[in-house]
Nucleic acid binder design. Structure first.
Lengths: 334, 334
DNA sequence: TTGAAAGCGCTAACAA
DNA sequence: TTGTTAGCGCTTTCAA
């Protein structure tokens, strides 16, 4: 095996210029005479030269690397986020270092990111300890919690208005004339769940009503299946369900229709949250709340780019509006 | 903003050792006296020292970076692959540089990967030109085409036995007593589609039968919807459909049941390919062929690790067995 | 086991 | 516009 490691020095020799001239030829906006640059580019092409991004990063202090961490990808919301975020960041000239990590190992992984001198960090469906968030702040690395909000954290966050979303759903279900409305929670530690739940309960309170029942699905398919079974093992059973995200709502509908032989929405109304692509599939046709992924991604990118360029990190909390998407799984108020 | 950049030199000074001692303390298997190492680790902790992975990569020639490229993530097969691959690679001490790129820009992106001195490249739902594949070979970078096979390419590949999968489906449908079996193709340029189609047609030929009709869905949701409509606009309509992947099969079932008011499998049998998580959801309960993601991921990781360690890249083509997963969307042969 | 010294490939002053 | 020079933070000989 021949390891041909062509360096700028090799190119310089062949183009009969200095090594720094080669460097300049590959840097936008550097002062190089057009014909010199041309000669260099030509020599580089002949040799198959590719600038070493690591060396460049070291000396310039700019790695052009953004770390992205997600806890899981089975909820289609996250692949969707990753795809959009990745494309947007690539357009801005950044590359993505991806980490899939279970809760618990998250802090350790953040350390790794920092070793790679990333210029920014996005935590999707994940958070980091305040200590570590502070370390990032000290190191001048902007951190964005995507779809999570931690009041005490120095990290920025981008979320949709989950409280408002919860409220919207409560109103919709109440106006729909349901009398036994239940809630299936996601991960009780997640801010998305807490906020959606808070908004939901607030609206009930405002109407002088109470939530009929509550179970916990932990944002997993299996957890949600267990939760519905539990809810429907008691009589009377709910006649409407707010499920804290779409991913769980699919599991819920499966159990409802397939195991319990109930019709949706005739027997039970179901509303989810996220508006993932599958929600629009006719097999589910799920009424849900849309989180503007595009808007959230744009916000994330601009926080990152802005703070990287300004060389100063500060905490920003962006909340995007939530919008109910009416499809076929919940009775529509008149 | 305070940019505290703690270097090994700072730690060395505080621990009263040389800078190279610090380096050794952070390298497994380097010869350092236990108490020296301890003193260094302590000093490092006090200072908040984190080794610079970029500098380490430069000098050692090992970036511990693997590039992963995918064309899209809306087909849940790929998020699934990314999650598994990422976890396995992290366990092996590698980090992932992720690129989401449309066909056409792929070669350019591969150049970028190489600039970051990645030690290996995985192309999922994507290929690269032979020229570039050869460049990677010359640079000693192993490349694995995941779920793609290019006969002329010097790159390795990991696929499931798509020809066999296509055959299995043909047999199942023929044995199921269908008389008008049609095929909805994916991306006609993709090897997965070509192989599945080849196996499918082979089996028909063996039985002295012909495929009733064929349309192209291009592996997209919309393309597949158009393809079914086209197929069912003519009389007689097919009574069975092999759809080249699950992602399209969901679209097909939506059109069949929702627009055309056909029952699956009573009026039309449908079989997909991939066995993505959604296939098991009761709303579809899709009969399909399983590609062993775990097996494919393992093969990919071992090709990569092996060639990185051996410092020699060579072409390997791994084909994993395909297995039919019988669910509820296709009539079951007696 | 430890330290000194020599770079890895590049960018960024500074002069020329 | 160009070349010279000095490092970025680290690993890795080589001697001690």
């Amino acid at each position: 095996m021949k390891k041909k490691v062509v360096t700028s020095g090799d190119v310089a020799r062949r183009a009969r210029v200095s090594q720094s001239a080669v460097s300049r030829a590959f840097t936008d906006g550097a002062s190089v005479a057009p014909q010199t640059r041309e000669r260099i580019i030509e020599a580089a092409a002949e040799l198959g030269y590719r600038p070493n991004a690591l060396a460049r990063a070291m000396i310039s202090g700019r790695s052009r690397l953004i770390a992205l961490m997600a806890a899981y990808l089975d909820n289609q919301f996250y692949p969707w986020v990753i795809e959009h975020l990745s494309r947007r960041l690539q357009d801005e000239g950044y590359n993505i270092l991806l980490f899939i990590t279970d809760t618990g190992k998250q802090d350790k992984v953040v350390q790794q990111m920092m070793q790679y001198q990333v210029e920014g960090i996005v935590m999707a469906s994940a958070t980091l300890s305040s200590t570590l968030a502070r370390q990032c702040e000290d190191a001048g690395i902007p951190v964005v919690l995507f779809n999570r909000f931690v009041p005490s954290s120095p990290a920025s966050s981008v979320t949709s208005d989950n409280v408002q979303g919860g409220r919207l759903i409560a109103e919709f279900l109440i106006q729909g004339g349901h009398s036994r409305i239940a809630f299936i929670a996601g991960d009780e530690d997640a801010s998305t769940n807490r906020d959606r739940e808070a908004g939901f309960y607030q609206a009930f309170h405002k109407h002088g009503r109470t939530v009929f029942a509550r179970a916990v699905g932990g944002y997993t398919f299996e957890g949600a299946s267990r939760a519905v079974r539990e809810l429907f093992s008691r009589r009377p059973a709910p006649d409407a369900l707010f499920v804290a995200n779409d991913h769980m709502a699919f599991a819920v509908m499966d159990v409802l229709r397939d195991e319990l032989n109930l019709r949706v929405p005739e027997d039970v109304s179901v509303i989810g949250y996220d508006d993932v692509p599958e929600s629009a599939w006719k097999g589910y046709n799920l009424t849900t709340v849309s989180q503007s992924v595009d808007g959230m991604v744009d916000a994330t990118v601009s926080i990152l780019i802005d703070q990287i360029n300004k060389q100063s990190v500060s905490r920003r909390a962006v909340v995007m509006p939530a919008q109910i998407i009416i499809r076929g799984t919940a009775r529509i108020p008149e």
